Simulated assay, not measured.
Amino acid sequence: MKLSVTIHRARLGPVEFKVIRPARPPVRAALVDRDRYLNAFLDQDAARLIGGLWTVAAASPRSLVHVPMRGNHAPAHGWPEAGTRQLDLVLLHHSLQFAPARWKELRARLGPGRPGTVTVPVPVPARSPAGGSPADDEARHHRENRDLFHQHLHAETLFMTGSAKVFRATADHFLDVARHGPGHAAAHPRNPHFCTRFHADAGILGDAREIHIEYCERWGPGG
């Protein structure tokens, strides 16, 4: 799978940061803060794109992967409740040690960037929810293990920080929605709901809330 991206570089003091964005940010995509957990609503193209960018994050430990989407329209069925807050998404490797509090400043310094293309290998579906053997699953629950996601919210943006291993192991959540969501919706018009989630019991979440990922075929005006 090939993705068209835009590559930006900007400095904060003596440090230069590289930010990768999709050349065409997803339109039928929304990330919603529901307090106890997070909801991602995606059509097929958006799910495939974000799955690819998830893999880009695994292969680019010195970059921030930014997915703008907080200004998008809601799905046709609307939000689960009023007053829902929409978010952008940033994926980054824990070794980058970027402070989310500096994101607004860095974002303001990003220019038009330069176009590029990245080739993304399609991940093999994991054999277990955590992406490995039972021994691997047990190791993931160890409190010093780094192969866990951590989340921060700043400047209307969700930061997903993790290791290359955990990004690779979880990209298929989005690709599964892209592969099976449209067929499920067509076969079950009265109950088109198709979803997956980053579950608390899967051993992939450290300081992070669950993420419910839902396929949505119909979107509101402008979406």
Results as ranks from 00 to 15, higher is better:
L91R: 05
A57H: 04
L64W: 04
Y37F: 14
S95H: 10
Q97P: 05
V5W: 07
F41S: 14
D35R: 15
P26K: 12
L89E: 04
L89G: 08
G71W: 00
V19T: 11
V90A: 04
A74I: 02
H73S: 13
I50D: 03
A23P: 01
D45P: 01
A29G: 13
R48W: 13
A76Y: 01
L49E: 06
G52W: 06
P25V: 06
A40K: 05
W54E: 11
L12T: 06
W79S: 02
P75L: 00
A40H: 09
L42C: 09
A99I: 00
A101K: 13
A57P: 08
D43G: 10
S4K: 15
L3Q: 15
G78D: 01
P68V: 02
R48K: 14
A47Y: 07
N72T: 11
V5R: 08
A74R: 07
G71F: 02
R24K: 14
P100D: 03
L89K: 13
L96I: 00
I50N: 02
R24V: 14
Y37T: 07
I20F: 12
N72A: 04
R28G: 07
D88M: 00
T84L: 05
D33S: 02
H8V: 03
A59L: 14
W54K: 08
T84V: 13
L96C: 05
L91E: 01
R62C: 03
M69G: 15
A82M: 02
V32N: 06
V27P: 09
E16Q: 15
V90W: 09
G78K: 02
V65F: 09
L96E: 00
W54R: 06
A101D: 12
N39I: 12
V27L: 15
S60K: 12
P100S: 03
A99K: 14
A57W: 10
H94M: 09
E16W: 07
A74V: 05
A59M: 14
P80F: 00
L91Y: 08
R48L: 12
G71D: 06
Q86Y: 07
D35C: 11
G52Q: 10
V56I: 11
N72E: 02
R11K: 15
L92N: 06
V90T: 04
R102F: 11
R11A: 14
N72Y: 03
L31F: 10
G13S: 06
A74Q: 05
V32Q: 07
